[in-house]
Design a protein around this nucleic acid. Structure first.
Lengths: 360, 360
DNA sequence: CCGGTTTGTGACACCGATGTCATGACACCG
DNA sequence: CGGTGTCATGACATCGGTGTCACAAACCGG
């Protein structure tokens, strides 16, 4: 690969003059500039970022650690792909600044994270973003104080800057909207008990019921992810069966995510029930491949991954430029309800009270 | 950030000795090694890859260009995410060699590719992988001869090393398996006419019919992606309606991909038909979030993205080590049929003739 | 006990950029 | 016309590692 010396020799100038042409940091004579430009093109010269970095001590690199790409822990649950939207938001924001994003993949194996961080530090990244596959509490290995870190879709107990989804408000807004549509008996099939989102969303569900003066009925609440993935359909079938046989059966099933809603569609139809004419269904995530493709399209709440990615990148850039401090804890990001045809509208809602609801 | 000189001073040795401890390329006394190790830990020293790279001229970096992460062209068709599996396969293979993968995102805007390549060249990547969002013919901007390139999920007219899916064989194997299960009237709803896969798969469909002595009936073939995404459901509805009203209606619908199959499930059920008891459905891609979650689970063909990623990385590594030449054109990778409950089995198949079929 | 090999260590140059400083050629000003 | 400032350019040192070479000490077989 040609160096700046080769270019200098070819253009019959000093290396420093070539450098000036490249960086425009000092005036260069017109003819000289033309000769240098020609030599660069002729030799196919590309400056070495390594050499440049040594001198300037600025790498222009941002490190991103994710498990999104090679999720090996739960290969049977490839629902982790939407978290790629987080990476998209980060990428878009970082790209605008001219910095380069280095993405490393942990395969969701936490023991590999320290070596990834070391690789990033060797490249002298200006900041680090850690992206978790789902909303959770994490503990990151130590990172030097002068390298800012932002957690995304996760948080820690040390108050590290973080960006997380507003699970409580999301479920609250959805249930409020269902109530506004005339639903009173709202069943809720939750995700696994051990994840952070489940507790928060159940809180939002109960808050919304309370605000509307509807009594909370434990018979309408059940975890839909008990046991192994293989038994999931059976668990859902049994839960749905039980609820439909209640004295006052539900008029709508809220599901833990859109994937679960897809399963519920199949189960309800196998029982001869039409969606939404006989029974309504709502999801969570706005996982569009499912929510928009399902027939009829699915009412759901957006898990605002792209917006979270943008915010995470912005926070990191602020930290790098010294505009903000690094102990301000999590930023909570909400997403809108997407109202589609999987839920019946029994009574016109007062839309003005529900600014976050979008009608497709 | 501490340098090797700081460590040398703290350990009271020369910088070169610290270098020897780090790289183990020459014997170091026991006590000296201990002192150096202690100094490294105390100072939190991490070697600078930039400085190392300057001397050795080896970056240990592989560049990957993809549009997978921020696909902005067709935001209504977020089906591009599975191509992330390609990245996963590449990542896994590259990771084993100790090299670092740099991922850059084009947002599927081809005009941004040259600048991404330039950034990679500045970092002196040892090789480049270009990943396309779907099987297609591409033309990449020029890259210096000494930087090997592998195309993935695409190919060019210059004979650049490439890895592409075996669309013809995939569709052929699926249809052969359907015939073995007793199906004779096999409808095929294809993807858009202008994509490479459509032509190849239609060829595979006709080949399989021909081999079984079944006459090809144009009435059973229709493009399911005419017009805009909004009208897609209507197009499918009309096509299905027409085919079901034929004198000899199909017993199975082959869909262009699993997403389309998901739509077809909804349409068939809205017509009161049960899958698979009244009518069978098959997809393409083995997009697991859909294929495994659908009720009943979907018979489909794997688009072998992970395997393609692994192969692409291997080809690149071979090129870098000089073990293979860079004009050997495309590698075609096939994937197995996944046989699930969405298709009826009218006659026990002769499985021994169909090695590529997997039963879940 | 001596020549030869191995072990352990340091001095120094070099990789390819760029910051600093010096220098020569003009132009402008009073 | 001498002094001052701007323009255009080059010499040289420097960033943080590592390859080369030199050299002293330890070891080893005969």
């Amino acid at each position: 690969m040609a160096t700046i010396y080769d270019v200098a020799k070819a253009a019959k100038v000093s290396p420093k003059t070539v450098s000036r042409v490249l960086n425009g940091d000092a005036p260069v004579g017109k003819k000289t500039r033309a000769a240098v430009t020609a030599a660069i093109a002729a030799l196919g010269y590309v400056p070495s970022s390594a050499a440049r970095m040594m001198r300037s001590n600025k790498s222009g690199l941002i490190g991103l650690i994710t498990g999104a790409i090679s999720d090996q822990i739960e290969p049977a649950q490839p629902a982790g792909l939407p978290e790629l939207l987080l990476v998209r938001g980060i990428q878009q924001t970082i790209g605008l600044t001219g910095k380069t994003l280095m993405i490393a993949d942990s395969g969701n194996r936490s023991e590999r994270v320290p070596e990834l961080i070391k690789t990033f530090l060797e490249h002298r990244v200006e900041g680090l973003i850690y992206v978790a596959p789902y909303h959770q509490n994490v503990r990151l290995p130590p990172v030097p104080d002068d390298t800012p870190v932002v957690l995304t879709n996760c948080y820690d107990d040390a108050g590290t800057p973080a960006v997380i989804p507003d699970d409580r408000r999301g479920q609250h807004d959805l249930v409020s909207r269902l109530i506004a549509a005339g639903h009173q008996r709202i069943a809720y099939l939750t995700l696994r008990e051990d994840i952070v989102a489940t507790g928060l969303r159940r809180g939002g569900y109960r808050d919304a019921l309370g605000e509307a003066g509807i009594a909370y009925d434990p018979a309408l609440l059940q975890c839909g992810e008990i046991g192994s993935p293989e038994t999931e359909t059976q668990v859902l079938w049994t839960a749905i069966d039980r609820m439909l046989n209640l004295d006052q059966p539900p008029t709508v099933f809220c599901c833990g995510n859109d994937r679960q809603a897809l399963k519920v569609y199949g189960i309800l139809r196998s029982r001869g029930l039409a969606v939404p004419d006989d029974i309504s269904v709502a999801g969570y995530d706005n996982y569009r491949v499912i929510a928009e493709t399902l027939y009829p399209p699915l009412t759901t709440v957006e898990l605002p991954y792209t917006a979270m990615g943008v915010r995470a990148a912005q926070r990191l850039l602020d930290l790098i430029s010294g505009e903000s401090r690094n102990d301000t804890g999590p930023d909570v990001i909400g997403g809108p309800v997407y109202w589609r045809q999987s839920v019946t509208e029994r009574r016109p809602p007062n839309v003005s009270q529900l600014k976050l609801v979008r009608e497709d």
